[in-house]
């Protein structure tokens, strides 16, 4: 008998999104493509249970409703295209900066960025630091909304390498991207979102 999928989604629906189903295995990356406003972010938000939605979701066979929402979101973590910040400095957003530092450096940022004020960060710095903020909690499923949109090629490659390493360790990801090349590099499967309808497609 096959092991249960890491993430199983059945009948997921919410306003702006027609019912859909898919499975995600360990180590798998699913590219999510489609025009702006088609419902890609709505899909990721529903998966993270951030908006009211219907459907049967489970992680390693454990139903979503059986666990408290905060625990679900630690395991199935959504990273928005424009991540939010709630404190003055970068370091204040990390419970354990020592654990974050190697990841920060792997993404081409200095360890001293801990003391940077959030208000001075560039878009690309925000994206990379928010990714680290999510990764230090070791989520099983990453819901990434254009995580490399504001990055140069070097930084983009560093992000792709870091996520690939996590996938190799048994995580899985949904990755929203407008870049066909990136979709082919990362994923063997692709979800196409158009006008709230989600279909599976080759990348």
């Amino acid at each position: 008998m096959a092991a249960p999928a890491l993430l199983s989604v059945r009948g997921l629906a919410r306003p702006g999104l027609q019912p859909l189903a898919f499975d995600l295995a360990e180590g798998e990356c699913l590219a999510v493509r489609g025009p702006s406003g088609a419902g890609k972010s709505l899909l990721l938000r529903a998966l993270a249970d951030l908006d009211p939605n219907d459907g049967e979701l489970s992680l390693e066979g454990e139903p979503r409703e059986a666990m408290p929402a905060p625990r679900w979101r630690r395991l199935v973590t959504y990273l928005p295209a424009e991540p939010g910040w709630w404190a003055e400095t970068v370091g204040a957003h990390f419970a354990d900066w020592a654990a974050a530092e190697p990841l920060v450096e792997a993404l081409g940022l200095p360890a001293a960025s801990r003391d940077w004020p959030v208000s001075r960060l560039s878009t690309g710095e925000r994206q990379r630091l928010a990714l680290v903020r999510a990764l230090v909690q070791r989520p099983r499923v990453l819901l990434l909304d254009e995580p490399t949109a504001g990055l140069d090629e070097t930084a983009r490659d560093a992000v792709e390498t870091l996520i690939a390493a996590r996938l190799a360790e048994g995580a899985a990801a949904l990755w929203v991207t407008h870049d066909a090349g990136q979709a082919r590099r990362l994923a063997r499967r692709c979800l196409k979102v158009e006008g709230g309808r989600v279909t599976e497609d080759a990348p």
């Binding site: 625990r71 979101r73 928005p80 991540p83 939010g84 709630w86 999510a134």
Partner: peptide, 8 residues
């Protein structure tokens, strides 16, 4: 607020 919620 949602940034904190997404992180659990």
């Amino acid at each position: 607020v949602e940034a904190q919620l997404t992180l659990g």
